[in-house]
Measured scan of single mutants.
Amino acid sequence: MEVRTIKVFTTVDNINLHTQVVDMSMTYGQQFGPTYLDGADVTKIKPHNSHEGKTFYVLPNDDTLRVEAFEYYHTTDPSFLGRYMSALNHTKKWKYPQVNGLTSIKWADNNCYLATALLTLQQIELKFNPPALQDAYYRARAGEAANFCALILAYCNKTVGELGDVRETMSYLFQHANLDSCKRVLNVVCKTCGQQQTTLKGVEAVMYMGTLSYEQFKKGVQIPCTCGKQATKYLVQQESPFVMMSAPPAQYELKHGTFTCASEYTGNYQCGHYKHITSKETLYCIDGALLTKSSEYKGPITDVFYKENSYTTTIK
C-alpha cells in the first residue's frame, strides 16, 4: 500500500517557510505537534488534498525554529505562539472599519479597549522592536488589523473576551517599542525636605499616572512627601515624541487643539466601556464603527496623549 502524501510549508514567522512532505494517514499533531492554519487549530486533523502548498504555523520545537521565533517575536515564552494563534482565530472574524481616516474595530468580545489602543497607536510616533509587531502594525494602518490585535493580546497575556485596560495595554506595548531616546527629568520640591531631581528613561519617561493635564504637570502637581507634608512635583525636561497622561476616570474637559487623542471610560472596574476622542479640525468621538463630532467635550476621561518633541522648564 502506497503512502499518500502532500507537500506543505511549516513556519513560526510566515517569513521562513520549511518544506514538509506530510503523510495523509496521520494527523498534523502526530507529525508536527500543535499546528495552526489561519489561526485555526488543526492539530487533530489529517492532511487533505486542499492543504497542498498551504502554510501551517507550528510551535518552535527545534533550534532553527526557536531562533526564527525569537528573532521575529522577541520572546522565548513557549506558550506565546499558541496564544497568538488562538487569538487570531477570533480577531480574523472582527470587522476593521476605516473611521475618520483611522483603522478602528467594530465592537465584539469586549474589544473596546483594543480599538482605543489601536486608534491611539496610529496617532503617536512609535516604532516597535519585534519585527512581528512592526509588520502587523503597518498592515493594521492599511486596514488589516487582525494579526496586530492578536499579537497585542498575546504580548499582554490576554484572551479574547476578557476586559482590558488601555493604560495597561499601552504599557505592555511600550515595553516592546523603541523608547531608548526618551528621557524625563522631574523635580520634587518640599518646604521641609528641599528639592530632589529624578531622571527617568524609556517607558517611565512617557507615562504618568495622577493627572490628565500635561500643562498642569509642567506647572506642578501636589504629591505627598515622605515627611508627610505636601510637596510639588513638576516637569523639568521632556525628550520624547509623545507623552501619555493618565488618571482614574473623572469628568474632564478636553479643549480642541490642546491634545492629540484621549480615552474615555464609562462604567466601573468590573464592567465598563471605552471610547476614543481625537482632536482634528474639530473633536471626534470614535466608538467602534461609530463616529460623532463636537466642538467641545466633557466626560469621564482616563488617558490623554500629547505630541511632544523637546521641553525644558522655565521655572527657576
Rank of each mutant, 00 (worst) to 15 (best):
V8W: 00
L17M: 15
L17S: 09
H18P: 09
Y28C: 13
G29N: 08
Q31K: 11
F32Q: 08
F32G: 08
G33E: 06
L37S: 12
A40H: 12
I45A: 15
K46V: 12
E52P: 08
T55P: 07
Y57V: 11
Y57R: 08
L59C: 14
D62E: 11
D63W: 11
L65I: 08
E68S: 07
A69W: 09
F70L: 14
H74Y: 02
T76M: 14
D77Y: 05
P78Q: 11
Y84N: 01
L88H: 03
W94P: 03
Y96R: 06
V99C: 08
G101I: 07
G101W: 09
L102Y: 06
I105H: 03
K106T: 13
W107M: 06
N111T: 06
N111H: 00
N111Y: 05
N111V: 03
C112G: 01
C112S: 09
T116Q: 00
Q122R: 07
I124V: 11
A140W: 06
G143K: 04
G143L: 05
A145K: 03
N147F: 06
A150M: 07
K158P: 01
L163S: 02
G164I: 02
M170K: 02
S171P: 00
Y172V: 15
L173M: 12
N178R: 09
K183M: 08
R184I: 04
R184S: 14
N187P: 03
V188R: 08
C190L: 07
K191G: 11
T192N: 14
L200E: 09
E204V: 02
M209R: 11
L212M: 02
Q216E: 14
F217A: 09
K218G: 02
K219E: 01
V221A: 02
Q222W: 05
C225Y: 02
C227W: 01
A231Q: 03
Y234F: 09
Q237S: 13
E239P: 03
S240T: 02
F242H: 01
F242M: 02
S246G: 00
S246Q: 04
P248T: 06
A250I: 11
Y252K: 02
K255I: 12
H256C: 13
G257W: 01
F259L: 01
A262Q: 00
E264A: 11
T266F: 06
G267S: 06
G267I: 04
Y269T: 12
Q270N: 14
Y274W: 00
H276F: 14
I277H: 00
T278I: 10
K280Q: 14
L283E: 00
L283T: 03
C285V: 15
I286M: 00
T292N: 05
K293H: 02
K298P: 05
P300H: 09
I301K: 01
I301T: 02
D303N: 03
F305V: 05
T312Y: 12
T314R: 15
T314E: 12
